[in-house]
Design a protein around this nucleic acid. Sequence first.
DNA 1: ACAAAAACTTACCACTTGGTAAGTGAATCG
DNA 2: CGATTCACTTACCAAGTGGTAAGTTTTTGT
Lengths: 220, 220
Amino acid sequence: MAAVVTSPPRGSRAARTRATEDRILSVALESFGTKGFDSVSLDDLAADLGITKQAILYHWSSKRALLDAVIDRAALELIIEFDGALSEEGSGWSRVESIVRRIFRVAMRRPELLGFIREISRIGGDASLRVTADLEPFVSRATTYFEREMDEGRIRRCDSGLLLVSAYSTVLGAATEVEVLRAVGIEPTLRSTVVRRRELLSFLHAAMVAPQALNAQVPR
Amino acid sequence: MAAVVTSPPRGSRAARTRATEDRILSVALESFGTKGFDSVSLDDLAADLGITKQAILYHWSSKRALLDAVIDRAALELIIEFDGALSEEGSGWSRVESIVRRIFRVAMRRPELLGFIREISRIGGDASLRVTADLEPFVSRATTYFEREMDEGRIRRCDSGLLLVSAYSTVLGAATEVEVLRAVGIEPTLRSTVVRRRELLSFLHAAMVAPQALNAQVPR
DNA sequence: ACAAAAACTTACCACTTGGTAAGTGAATCG
DNA sequence: CGATTCACTTACCAAGTGGTAAGTTTTTGT
């Protein structure tokens, strides 16, 4: 209720603008990701930020333009979180394992980020196209990575696009289950998370690893 | 745009009321499940139905009361779709397989139903409590079923509640991937569905079947 | 046949929504 | 320093929101 009175930053004007836009995008991502785009009004956002709605409309010409900016930021943060994992050391399987661990870490620490992506795919239309376009370089890298792993026999050969989408949805489903648990009143424990992650790794191992690659470490 | 002029049903008053409420609940479930609760106004619903908003408010005192009714209907339909699978014939594993097949069938034919449940868990609060309460008898039955399967050694022993939630999220994630595919512009093909279902069954088999129960048919 | 109740509609209303127009004090530039 | 631009705020507004009040027609109980 009581607005947070933050003394305006004393840096250069450009820095101040950047800081404000950053704050707006951050709060918008959080709100849109947890409550949904239509459930959050510009007045709600402004109240959370301690500014007026028109301050937001000064930086972006419409609520929809703000959404586009939030999509870009969410995609960027996702790429930052996950892209590094593709470059990591280790054999094919252990790298997959590290990616999954990262996703779970993100799901635990920043559920609104994955929730936002889901929200966008429900809004559909231009929003979906935009997030798809934003993530294309990453998807492309991941596909190339999978193709190479298949070529070298560390992963069973299959449609790599299908594999990616399939892995995405399964992992996202398992990871965002945190939300469902919370909704039902069960605060997710560390143990339940560990159990789920282990089961998921077992699944991915069964689904992805080539049968002849028995030298790969079998989880569980 | 042009309202569908349906001649009012000529049956008894009670039957007519039931038919109208049924139509409203059906359209509301569809809309809430795909667009989200806050994104659908009572005027939108009424326009889809060819009636006025006040006709809806005659049957339920508020939009929130309508949501509760939709929750009850969605839970009922879910139970109808899945509960029978628990009573089916067959060994432990083949029954799990039939449940998964059912879920995929529902996800393909009625994506809005699973989408609605997800929407509810995002709304949280009383709505989540209500759907949880509605589904409790089914969850209870499923838990009992799992416990018995474990007792008889057909499923590896573990926390049955955890197993249920885990299976729920994983299967729901895999099944509702249809939505994501559509959002990205890929109309899900029969083949991709078959592939995903096969992979999921492989996962569940690895995660659930007890190691010594090697007489169970191994999928894939 | 007739009054009462049911199943609606038409007419409103207070409030919220995204968005516009005009003003204001501080930072920046000449 | 002085004019101007920037980053806002205050003041509005038309459209849409959930919801109320008061009819109107059709079915129902007596």
